[in-house]
Simulated scan of single mutants.
Amino acid sequence: MGSKIRTTIERYVELVGAGSADDVVSLYAADATVEDPVGTPVRKGHDAIREFYELLVPLERETTLHPETVRIAGNSAAFMFTVVTTVNDQRFVLTPIDVMEFDDDGKITGMRALWSQDDMRVDTE
C-alpha cells in the first residue's frame, strides 16, 4: 500500500504544479474531503474539490516535493512540499505540510493542509 500512496503523493504535487483541476480531482475518492488550510470550511466531493483547485489553474505555478519529509503509516501520510505562484511579477512561496488519508486503491479520501498566511513569503529574487 505504501508504494501506491507514495505514487499518489508524487502525482499530486506534480499536478498541483502543472495540472488541470480535473487532473488533481482524479486523485481523490468521490466522497473525499479537503480542508486547506486547516480551519477553513471543509470541501466534500469532487465538485467542491474541483472548485477549490480551479483557483490555481490560471496562475503561473511550480511545485517541489520534499521527499525526505514523506511519512506513510497505514493508510495515512504526511509530507511537505513547496508551491511557488507568480502573480503580476511577484513570486509567492508557500511550504505547507499536507496530511492525507487514502483508500485501498490509493485514492485520497481526506486532505488537510497545515499552513497560515504567516507561512507565505514573497520571493524577492
Rank of each mutant, 00 (worst) to 15 (best):
R50W: 08
D105S: 14
A77K: 05
T109W: 07
L56W: 10
D103T: 08
P37T: 06
N88Q: 12
D36W: 12
R112D: 12
L56A: 08
V93L: 06
V13F: 03
S26W: 09
V122P: 00
G19V: 10
D118E: 08
I49S: 03
G110K: 15
S3C: 04
E10N: 02
G39W: 03
T86E: 08
S20L: 12
I9M: 00
R43E: 09
D36R: 02
L114R: 04
E125W: 10
T64V: 06
F81I: 00
G45A: 10
R71W: 04
E35D: 15
D22V: 10
V25H: 08
V99T: 12
V84H: 00
I108S: 04
V16C: 07
V38K: 10
Q90H: 13
T124K: 08
G106T: 08
V93P: 05
R43F: 06
T109C: 08
S76A: 14
S26N: 15
T40K: 09
Y12P: 11
R121Y: 11
R43A: 14
G45I: 03
Q90V: 04
H46K: 11
E125T: 12
P67M: 06
D118H: 07
V34L: 15
G45H: 13
T63K: 04
G39I: 11
E51G: 13
P67F: 01
T69I: 05
L65M: 09
P96R: 00
V87N: 10
S116W: 05
D123L: 12
L59W: 01
R121P: 02
V24I: 15
D119E: 14
P41T: 14
L15E: 02
I9E: 01
T69R: 04
R11L: 13
K4Q: 11
Q117K: 05
G106E: 07
H46C: 05
A29W: 12
I72H: 03
D47I: 11
E10A: 03
I97R: 00
R91W: 01
E10Y: 07
S116Q: 09
R6P: 01
T33E: 14
E60M: 07
A30D: 15
E14T: 12
I108T: 13
V42Q: 10
V83T: 00
P58W: 14
E68F: 04
V93E: 03
